[in-house]
């Protein structure tokens, strides 16, 4: 046997159009990277970065609490309040949507499919843009933020709730129907107890996300800790930027831990 094995055993044929994909990918990347103005650095960049870092390590502790109320604690509390209310509103509003989108509760796939479509539309609409529009409607302030988070969260919560409803055990429903229960009674006694822990867990999860979202609402004037942050950035008050960042990081970490612990106990 003179030929080496590598020539005897045929290689599996690769996709003939594979190279086309590589060429396309390469073209996209060349287009993407060639358009980035990498030389657009401000010469002060290094200095400012240093200033922000030193701001984080030597924060403006005086900003934590001020007698006039426009301080860090007030900003963080307002952020939390926005997320609590936003989450609360969306949890209630999304329930009918979830039942609409759940395939085992709607009549037919077309109806549940249309529900899912509406939810994914709402989900795609960024909360910050919603906040911009609500500011036009109710004026700047936290209430616009509450409404924006409340509306935007419906998309994701509605989908998660619908999934939860689709996973229920049909048995208890049959038992209730066979004892002569009305449709509402079946929902209340057989469906709700099954989905409630899941609903609560997802609500807490969404709350964690909403706290993060609420920190940025102030950037466009929809309340929360984002407002003083933007002012501090504009005024180049790096020590204040430092303490605000620190405050945000601590708040989000604490909320995540608390919410995560409760969620573990629910399931």
């Amino acid at each position: 046997m003179s030929k080496p094995w590598s020539e005897i055993v045929p290689k599996p044929r690769k996709n003939r159009f594979r190279w086309l994909i590589y060429v396309a990918l390469a073209a996209i990347y060349i287009w993407a990277f060639s358009g980035v103005p990498f030389n657009g650095f401000k010469e002060t960049a290094g200095v400012i970065t240093k200033a922000i870092f030193s701001g984080i390590f030597s924060p403006d502790w005086g900003f934590v609490y001020l007698p006039d109320g426009e301080d860090l604690l007030h900003g963080l509390l307002e952020t939390l309040a926005i997320s609590v209310l936003g989450t609360f509103i969306s949890t209630f509003v999304c329930i009918p949507f979830a039942f609409w989108a759940a395939v085992n509760m709607s009549r037919g796939k077309v109806i549940s499919g249309s529900g899912k479509l509406v939810l994914s539309f709402v989900r795609t609409f960024p909360e910050i843009v919603m906040a911009l529009l609500f500011i036009k409607a109710v004026g700047p302030g936290s209430f616009a933020g509450v409404l924006a988070l409340g509306l935007h969260s419906i998309g994701m919560l509605g989908k998660l709730f619908a999934d939860e409803i689709e996973n229920i055990d049909r048995g208890p429903l049959e038992a209730l129907i066979s004892s002569g229960a009305s449709r509402m009674q079946v929902l209340w006694f057989a469906v709700l107890p099954q989905v409630l822990p899941g609903f609560l867990s997802y609500t807490l999860y969404r709350f964690e996300i909403n706290v993060r979202s609420a920190t940025i609402l102030g950037v466009i004037g929809a309340g929360g800790i984002g407002t003083p942050l933007i002012f501090a950035l504009g005024a180049r008050n790096w020590d204040r930027v430092g303490i605000i960042l620190l405050g945000i990081i601590v708040m989000i970490t604490v909320i995540d831990i608390i919410s995560g612990t409760i969620r573990k106990r629910l399931v």
């Binding site: 055990d169 048995g171 038992a175 004892s179 002569g180 057989a190 107890p193 099954q194």
Partner: peptide
């Protein structure tokens, strides 16, 4: 529903609300 009220049913998988 009135007729069903008079007919009880027992299932293989019990069909209780477990939680």
């Amino acid at each position: 529903r009135r007729i069903r009220r008079d007919i009880g049913m027992i299932f293989q998988s019990f069909n209780l609300v477990k939680r």
